[in-house]
Amino acid sequence: MQSGSRRSWRIATPFFVLALGAGLAGCGDGKDKEAARAPETIRAMETQVVRKELVEPVTGTGTVIADKTTVLGPRVTGIIDKVFVKVGDRVKEGDPLFQTRDIELKLKVAELENQVKLAEANLRNAARAFGRSAELHDKGFVSNGGLDNARATRDTAAAQLGIAQAQLAGIRQQLADSIVRAPFDGVVTRRDVDEGKFMTTMGVDVSMGSGANSGSGVVQVMKIDTVYAIVQIPETDLRRVGVGTRAKVTVDGLGRSFDTEAAVVNDSVDAASRAVQLRLPIGNGDYAVKPGMFVRAELYPAPRSVLALDRSAVQGTESARYVFISENGVARRVPVTLRQIDASTVEVLSGLKEGQQALTGPNLPLIADGTPIKVETVAANLP
């Protein structure tokens, strides 16, 4: 019996070992599967939603114009006798620019001066005659009709003197106007006529035929100690700018920028381009900035308060933006409405409040809604 029992143990033992091994193996597989199903904790950083003052420049392009531009033609009809300036000359107010031949005017002045002297003599005689007539009328030697005639003669002589004096003043003014002078400090930018051309006060070149207009004056003068940048901006930005808005104008041709402010905002919007013109003054004491130059302008409206967030925290497409926040050690997806400020910052329009933290960092693409997270560091806040 004993020997039989030993044989039974020897036979049974291998089956027991196999069964025990299978049971232990089964227990191990369950734990491994459970461990495989447990989500992995992801390390992340946070960045804060902060309030900041935002200045968003309004940009535009345009052209430089002179402060004043005047094309000057003759003030009296005649031959252009002398042109005193050339293109590029700087002139002061009152400097002579050109002269119309004045010999006929000087002769006319002399003639009218004598006409005035003659009228003055006639008036003196008529006044004395009236005085005598008045005395004799008082004594009864001159009738009322005779006194009236003497008075009329005196008044006529006075009127003739007035006419002669007015004619003399007019011709003297023409003589003065034969020299055309600079109306302001500036620079000569065009000269269209040389000496010898006959021109009327309307700029007519008689050599071209009766009534033919030459279409130009003699010289053009520009006032450019101050110039203006005429800049166009979209009408959608009109509400953000106004007279006094700070600006910077860059003249690419000079490689220089000038600080200024909007002096004029045009009240008319161009119907074709939907643009508004602004006038920005530029101090130009050295005349370096030339009318016609291309300029770029940045205008700086008053700052506005915004909620700003680091762009690195934002996920999703343009139509469905979202961020992740940490909630009890778990990532929670939060839809947000944003507006781009610059390459690294967005404005939060909805979805987050000031002071809230959004997840960021290199592991952000691995995070989904409900992912266990561990915040290790806090990303630097926006400036």
Rank of each mutant, 00 (worst) to 15 (best):
M1N: 13
R7C: 04
S8C: 07
S8I: 10
F15P: 03
F16P: 01
L20D: 10
G23F: 15
G30M: 12
P39H: 13
Q48F: 10
V49S: 06
G60Y: 01
G60N: 00
G60C: 01
T69V: 11
P74R: 05
T77G: 01
K86G: 09
R90G: 13
R90V: 09
D95K: 07
R101C: 06
D102K: 08
D102E: 12
A110K: 02
N114T: 12
L118F: 14
L123H: 10
N125T: 11
A127E: 15
E135W: 09
L136R: 11
K139D: 15
V142C: 02
L147G: 03
D148L: 05
A150C: 00
T156H: 13
A158E: 01
A159C: 06
A169H: 07
Q174M: 08
L175Q: 03
A182I: 08
V188G: 04
R191A: 09
D192M: 11
M199R: 15
G209T: 02
G211T: 04
N213M: 12
Q220L: 06
V221A: 10
I224Y: 00
I224V: 05
T226W: 06
T226E: 12
V227L: 05
V227W: 05
I230V: 10
I230H: 14
Q232E: 08
E235G: 03
R239G: 07
R240L: 13
V241A: 02
G244T: 11
G244F: 14
R246W: 07
K248G: 00
T250G: 03
G253M: 00
L254H: 04
R256A: 04
S257A: 04
V264E: 00
V265N: 10
S268Q: 15
V269R: 00
D270C: 02
D270A: 06
D270G: 11
A275M: 10
L280P: 02
G283Y: 10
N284V: 02
N284E: 01
G292V: 02
E298L: 07
Y300D: 10
S305A: 08
V306H: 07
R311P: 02
A313D: 01
V314Y: 08
V314D: 04
Q315M: 09
S319R: 15
A320R: 03
F324P: 02
V330K: 08
R339M: 09
S344T: 14
T345Y: 07
E347I: 00
L352A: 03
E354I: 04
Q356N: 09
Q356C: 07
Q356D: 11
Q356S: 11
L366A: 09
I367M: 05
A368H: 04
T371V: 08
V375H: 15
V375F: 12
A379N: 01
A380Y: 04
